[in-house]
């Protein structure tokens, strides 16, 4: 059977979407899958909107970019940014997003409207990743909470992602690995309880 996950990662420069990409990518490579991941470097990294196209497949991948209308999921660490990439999402695609806004523009739209728009989409997981991360004692691992929530849609075994966290964060010490693993599990548990499927 052909395995294929086309993922748009979204956020604001500096929010850590590339760490999410690195962990999913590492897990996919250990499974023997093909991976392509395009990133944004340069000017936009200064607090602008950033996105990464992450493609996993059991077959060789041609394009570095995901065609519009073809992404299986949008994983976003910021709610407004989740909506920016809707043209890429296919009809039955999932939105997994943080609900905590990153407000660095004067005209940020009313948060309740942003969240209501996301909630109106058929497949979504909305999670206050910052709050969950703070609860487990590491506000900086909100991105791992989001990654954990996304595992309910990823065609990768959960243990493989845990292993990837160990290998990516291993150099930073056991404490950091432990925190990130807790964040990952907390994200998954939340998503299993709160996923919305119309």
């Amino acid at each position: 059977m052909i395995m294929k996950n086309d993922i748009i990662l979204a956020g604001v420069g500096g929010q850590g979407i590339l760490s999410i990409a690195a962990i999913i990518g590492t897990a996919a490579v250990s499974r023997g899958l093909y991976v392509k991941q395009s990133e944004v470097h340069g000017m936009s990294q200064r607090g602008g909107d950033v996105q990464s196209h992450l493609r996993l497949s059991s077959r060789p991948i041609a394009s570095d970019l995901i065609p519009t209308g073809a992404a299986d999921m949008i994983i976003s660490v910021e709610p407004l940014e989740a909506l920016r990439y809707l043209p890429w999402l296919k009809k039955e695609g999932w939105i997994i997003t943080n609900t905590k806004p990153f407000v660095n523009i004067p005209n940020y739209p009313p948060l309740e409207e942003v969240l209501a728009t996301i909630a109106s989409k058929p497949h979504h997981v909305m999670i206050d990743a910052d709050e969950i991360a703070t609860e487990i004692g590491s506000a900086r691992s909100a991105n791992m909470v989001i990654l954990g929530a996304s595992t309910i849609c990823l065609d990768l075994p959960f243990e493989e992602l845990e292993q990837a966290i160990r290998s990516v964060f291993g150099k930073k010490g056991e404490e950091i690995v432990h925190t990130n693993l807790s964040a990952l599990r907390a994200g998954r548990d939340f998503a299993l309880q709160h996923k919305n499927q119309a």
Partner: peptide, 10 residues
């Protein structure tokens, strides 16, 4: 409702 988020000075 999605407005642009241009890069800015840190």
């Amino acid at each position: 409702l999605v407005v642009p988020r241009p890069p800015s000075l840190c």
